[in-house]
């Protein structure tokens, strides 16, 4: 039985070295590295989360990356991020330009969330707040150049609420009107259908976390 003692018995020294210090060191290293990741996710760019998602910090706290929301999405709009997302690895998000959120009236994704990262009590799609659409490139927006595009407006699931059309006189032709799409940030749910539908190579309307701040006053 000597040999077996040697193999399976644990000396105090080995216990200290292998049993406590090493795992502790590894765990501390893991914790340390991950703490480095614990910057706000938007520092790495904005992730469009599924409907009902908590504010990004709370969302990352509550999401256990089970993928049920993505599986519940009938349009495969929800993807699970990979290693590139850093701290947000394995979390669900939507790439609107590829497949936006089509706002299913019963919100199956939010209903599927076990952990509260998505608010499953959400019933009204108009109350969803994933972000807000912003026309980021006014120079390249065809509608703003007087062409009859307005695809973003007509495809908007909250047409006439989140996006409305403001006609303005077109000075260049003198007889036509420019049909300007106006986004109402208080109504926009951030589904990304406009970003998806935009006909320009690089969409001129995109979903952002919040509209760029515009201050009417000078702050000293």
């Amino acid at each position: 039985m000597d040999s077996s003692t040697k193999h399976s018995g644990i000396t105090r020294r080995r216990f200290l070295k292998d049993g406590v210090l090493l795992p502790l060191a590894l765990a501390a290293a893991g914790g340390g590295v991950s703490t480095l990741f614990l910057r706000r996710a938007d520092a790495r760019g904005f992730y469009l989360r599924p409907p009902g998602a908590l504010e990004e910090g709370n969302f990352l706290a509550a999401c256990i990356k089970c993928g049920k929301c993505a599986q519940a999405c009938p349009y495969n709009s929800i993807r699970m991020s990979g290693a590139e997302a850093g701290v947000a690895i394995g979390t669900p998000h939507i790439i609107a330009r590829e497949t936006p959120c089509y706002l299913c009236p019963d919100l199956p994704c939010a209903k599927a969330c076990p952990s509260g990262a998505l608010d499953r009590k959400l019933e009204d799609v108009e109350k969803v707040r994933m972000g807000t659409a912003v026309i980021v490139d006014r120079e390249n927006c065809l509608s703003l150049r007087g062409l009859r595009c307005e695809v973003c407006y007509r495809q908007c699931p909250l047409i006439d609420k989140a996006i409305t059309i403001l006609p303005r006189h077109n000075q260049r032709t003198g007889v036509h009107s420019i049909m300007e799409p106006v986004i109402h940030h208080d109504k926009c749910v951030g589904c990304g259908i406009c970003e998806n539908a935009c006909v320009r190579d690089k969409p001129v309307i995109v979903v952002m976390k919040s509209p760029p701040e515009q201050k009417d006053y000078y702050e000293f």
């Binding site: 216990f15 502790l24 914790g31 991950s34 990352l60 999401c63 690895i89």
Partner: peptide
């Protein structure tokens, strides 16, 4: 081979980092 008791430590680290940093630590690395 290394000692078995490491898993308990990593459990403790996981739970305390989750609480303190507000991030489900292990779910990120799992």
């Amino acid at each position: 081979s290394y000692s078995l008791s490491g898993t308990r430590w990593s459990l403790a680290v996981t739970l305390s980092v989750s609480l303190l940093a507000g991030i489900p630590l292990f779910e990120m690395l799992s």
